[in-house]
Amino acid sequence: MSSLLHAELLKLRTTRTFVALVGVTLLLSLLVVVLTGLLSDRIAPQDARNLFTADFTGLFIMLLGVIGMAGEWRHRTITGTVLAAPDRLRLMGAKTLAYAAAGLLLSLIVTVTIMVVGTIILSARGFETVPVSDLADVLWRNLVVAALVGALGVGIGALVRNQVVAIIGVLILGFVVEPALFGLAPDVARFGPTQGAPSGIQDIEFFGEDSDPLSPAVATLVMLGWIALFFAAAGVRLRRRDLV
């Protein structure tokens, strides 16, 4: 498993996709933090804390996992990959761990950067900054979410296989279905894989006053459940599938 994991991490490092996604995520996250920091009349520490949490990392990491797995079919490299690693479940396991690690790294880079830049802006404008202990709290929550959504992206990519369909599906789920559920059935939305459960881990109140987010522990378990569900469904399909 160690060799497979290293190989998957090497795959990640040797195309432009990961670097491009880090760049885009960093740029968008910084844009939001800088504009909010510069244009807002007043930013309370709790607002700043939420600002450091609500970055674009989660979505992009999930897309990274989707692209990494479904790309094996898009570029028709799945045959060579399975020839090198015939145990298809181990292969999926290694990919899942690799993209969880990639999620951690991407989130670490983005979160630390926006925290530093945001804190500098807050200080320069004379606003109260977020205490280091709170920043650390935000950081670990972001990292956990990043690792989980990276792993989930691999499961989604392996199950759907068509890269374009998988990406569009994730975007619709994240931007349309789950937000709609927040209004219609917040108790259900809390369990969603792209917004609901991650919000529970990050302790963000997306649900209005009628419903609280899940506790971090429960939300983490829910995310692990989503990962297991997609992994199992994709694993069964991948093991049975003839690669012709």
Binding site: L4, A7, L10, T14, T15, G71, H75, T77, T79, G80
Partner: peptide, 19 residues
């Protein structure tokens, strides 16, 4: 036989060597 178009030949072989 297909290869990721964005990866160099050396890196493709390094991935296989690692595996």
């Amino acid at each position: 036989a297909s290869f990721h178009p964005g990866r160099t030949a050396r890196n493709h072989l390094r991935v296989l060597a690692t595996t």
